Computed example of a mutant assay.
Amino acid sequence: MWPARSGTETVTCLACGTECPRDEAREYDKHGDRWDRADKTFEHLCKSCHRELCHHPRDDLEDLLVEIEAGRRDRAGFLASYLTAVEERYGPLEEES
């Protein structure tokens, strides 16, 4: 059994910046393995932002972001690099009609 939390811990949603009580938020683990809790600290999402997420597996996403140096270039450069890398790994992107 987990020990009871004392008081109301407040966390900040990493997507929208809203502060909310911890028990009203969802844990986010950038590695997609929230069950392996050893030596981890989690970021949090408010319930609204969590519902808007794609909940499909994201295998290789972190490696891809590191490879294209996400966070070290402007938005346009990042998006161009991301699309190129995705097409090289998985083939051409097709839009759904």
Rank of each mutant, 00 (worst) to 15 (best):
T41H: 10
T41G: 03
S97G: 13
E24R: 15
A4F: 12
D59A: 14
C54A: 09
F78I: 06
H56W: 10
E19S: 12
G17M: 05
W2P: 08
P3D: 00
H31K: 12
W35P: 01
R34K: 12
Y90R: 15
L93T: 03
W35Q: 12
C13A: 04
H44N: 01
A4W: 07
R22E: 04
D74V: 07
E87M: 07
E95H: 09
P92K: 12
R34L: 11
D36G: 08
A4Y: 11
D36N: 15
E96K: 14
C54Q: 12
D63W: 04
Y82N: 05
D29G: 03
E9G: 04
G32Q: 09
L53Y: 10
T41A: 10
G7F: 00
L64E: 02
L53A: 07
L65P: 09
F42V: 07
C49H: 11
G91A: 07
E62L: 13
Y28M: 10
V11S: 01
E67W: 01
E9C: 09
H50F: 15
K40P: 06
G32D: 06
K40G: 01
A70R: 06
G32N: 08
E96Y: 13
A15V: 02
S6I: 00
D60N: 14
R72M: 01
P92N: 06
E52T: 13
V86Y: 10
D23E: 09
M1W: 01
R34G: 15
C13M: 03
L79Y: 09
C20K: 14
R73E: 02
A70L: 00
L53F: 11
R34Q: 09
G32R: 13
E87Q: 14
D63K: 15
A80I: 01
L79Q: 10
S6G: 04
L14N: 07
E19W: 10
F42P: 05
E87T: 07
A38F: 05
A80R: 12
C20T: 13
E24N: 13
K40F: 09
I68G: 03
K30E: 05
D63C: 03
S97Q: 14
E24S: 15
F78P: 08
C46G: 11
T10E: 04
A85N: 01
G91P: 11
T18G: 03
H44R: 06
W2D: 05
K47Y: 01
G7M: 00
H44L: 00
G91F: 06
L53K: 15
E67V: 02
R34P: 12
K40H: 05
L45H: 08
T8I: 06
C20I: 11
L65A: 07
A80W: 00
S81Y: 03
C49P: 09
A4M: 13
E9D: 10
V66E: 13
K30W: 06
P3R: 09
E95S: 06
F42G: 04
V11P: 02
V11Y: 00
T41E: 13
E69W: 15
L64D: 03
T41Y: 10
C49R: 12
E96P: 05
W35F: 07
D63H: 12
G32P: 05
D23Q: 11
R58A: 07
E52R: 15
T10L: 06
K47D: 11
H55Y: 06
P57V: 00
L64W: 06
A70V: 03
T10S: 02
A38R: 15
E88G: 05
D36H: 15
R72L: 04
